[in-house]
């Protein structure tokens, strides 16, 4: 017998040590979440001792850096919503139609061209998109609509729409492709055209996956920072006019951190309150999207 099996015990200990190290690493993600909640919660709490929650949520003026200070988040919320709605109006339909084209019509060759392009678009840093909006999209808009301000919601919406488009397209593509082939063949065997099949079989069958991708994309638009900071401006305006300068929640946080606001003051605490609200909104949307996605997986497996 050439084998020696005597080191079995030390091997068992080694196995256990390795498992513990791996578990510890996995635990870091939990710690990160707790730290985010702790950090945002603690400073927001102090903030809300001074500013009543209702003033914060329903106030129509956001002037934390000027006297008299006012802390109504609605202008920032309106700015954010403008971007979210604007970009969604572009990215959701275009993304869905792209996905339909890729999964129903496109040849393999076309897929091989379009997929990498979407990946490249998804990988371009947001600061580059911000630059593109500021130096290309805005001037083009101003040729058509001369009354447009240099910083405006429209340009930022368009560029954020371009940013989230690849995400919508690729997630919708996945959802549509997970519709069983048999279902599709059943439709074609009844003499349906691809359009009719898409409208009444494929898209309804992939509906929850499509909705989940929409929710995820919208959540991305909520949290988008650099493009809107560069292109949308720094004026907390309670307006839904896309041609005016506005400010989003994220852009406000950047603005404060660029200045030299001393730690501990009420101005400093605002970034935690605004960041906390942003975190809660995106968290709810992400949980919803994941729930919808898991729900539809159960249906098809």
């Amino acid at each position: 017998m050439f084998f020696r099996f005597s080191h079995s015990l030390s091997m068992k200990i080694k196995e256990r040590v390795i498992k513990s190290i791996l578990a510890l690493s996995a635990f870091i993600s939990i710690v990160t979440t707790l730290a985010i909640i702790g950090v945002l919660g603690r400073e927001s709490f102090t903030f809300f001792l001074t500013v009543p929650v209702t003033d914060f949520l329903f106030g129509t003026h956001w002037e934390p850096l000027l006297e008299p200070k006012s802390f109504g988040i609605l202008p920032l919320m309106a700015g954010t919503l403008l971007i979210v709605i604007g970009s969604g109006m572009i990215a959701l339909p275009v993304g869905l139609l792209t996905a339909i084209y890729l999964s129903e019509y496109a040849s393999n060759r076309t897929r091989e061209i379009i997929k990498p392009i979407l990946e490249i678009l998804a990988g371009i840093p947001t600061v580059v998109y911000g630059y593109f909006a500021l130096t290309f999209i805005t001037p083009v808009i101003r040729i058509v609509l001369p009354q447009t301000q240099i910083f405006n919601g429209l340009s930022a919406s368009i560029v954020v729409g371009i940013m989230i488009l690849p995400m919508v397209a690729s997630l919708c593509d996945d959802a549509i492709r997970s519709v069983p082939v048999t279902l599709r063949q059943g439709g074609y065997a009844l003499g349906a055209t691809p359009y009719e099949l898409t409208k009444s079989v494929t898209v309804p069958a992939a509906f929850s996956g499509i909705i989940a991708s929409f929710v995820l994309a919208i959540s991305r638009a909520f949290g988008e920072t650099m493009a809107v900071t560069l292109a949308a401006g720094a004026t907390p305006n309670l307006t839904l006019n896309p041609l005016e300068s506005i400010q989003t929640m994220t852009a406000y946080i950047v603005q404060v951190s660029l200045g030299d606001t001393p730690a501990g003051g009420i101005e400093y605490q605002t970034i935690f309150a605004v960041g906390g609200l942003l975190f809660i909104i995106t968290l709810i949307m992400n949980i919803a999207a994941n729930w919808i996605m898991n729900h539809y997986r159960e249906v098809y497996e």
Partner: peptide
């Protein structure tokens, strides 16, 4: 942990900055 990681992936980058 899995749900947690999926959600962390969706947290806006600026929140990580904070």
């Amino acid at each position: 942990i899995e749900i947690n990681i999926a959600n962390l992936a969706g947290v806006p980058s600026i929140v990580y900055g904070i």
